[in-house]
């Protein structure tokens, strides 16, 4: 039995990146905060590009706690949504071109979100990665960590619970 020939790498990358870009670019608030996502395989790292408008304490200066919370929440929602989309994109069930044309699946809704502020956010870029610790039929629990210069010196972390939209949950 011969397995099918693998797709060319650029075809695979183009499909995955187009789907991710569609998901992220559809949300005005993500564009407003200027958060982008790097992808390695299915793993996402979000980047909060620093700007003076993100300052919360002009005397230190430090990033606004609300911006940090928003950055962590955006990372959690996109990562959770992506974890549901990935198998559907890879199986061919979802067409990234449809996603790019605005046919997006419904987003998870935040039930609660608890942010732990570990250090003040310095006036420079920040990075975050979220882990979906549980994703059931209706509810998901997501943990997210953010850092700036050193990955092992987090400046904030958070845990949130999310309600899974029923159209994406049913198809895993």
């Amino acid at each position: 039995m011969s397995r099918p020939r693998p797709e060319p790498v650029q075809v695979v990358k183009q499909r995955r990146d187009a789907a991710l870009a569609a998901l992220v670019n559809a949300v005005p608030y993500i564009r407003f905060l200027n958060i982008t996502f790097d992808r390695r395989g299915d793993e996402l790292t979000s980047v909060l590009h620093f700007d003076d408008k993100l300052i919360g304490n002009p005397f230190l200066p430090a990033i606004h706690g609300g911006v940090t919370a928003a950055f962590l929440e955006v990372t959690s929602v996109i990562t959770l949504n992506w974890s549901h989309l990935w198998p559907r994109i890879e199986s061919g069930e979802l067409d990234p071109e449809d996603l790019a044309a605005g046919k997006l699946p419904r987003q998870p809704k935040t039930i609660d979100f608890t942010v732990d502020y570990l250090r003040s956010g310095l006036p420079r870029d920040a990075y975050a990665r979220a882990t979906v610790n549980r994703s059931g039929r209706r509810y998901a629990s997501v943990h997210v960590e953010a850092w700036q210069d050193h990955k092992d010196r987090l400046f904030a972390q958070a845990t949130g619970h999310f309600l899974i939209p029923q159209d994406s949950a049913s198809k895993g």
Binding site: V27, P28, Y29, F32, G65, A69, A70, E73, V74
Partner: peptide, 27 residues
């Protein structure tokens, strides 16, 4: 404000924007 929208389909503002105003108000 339209720039605060989190769900483009409904126009509902993002939870993060609510977090930002809550954090400021608490402070």
């Amino acid at each position: 404000d339209k720039k605060l929208i989190g769900d483009p389909e409904t126009g509902v503002i993002h939870g993060g924007a609510v977090s930002a105003v809550m954090d400021t108000c608490c402070g």
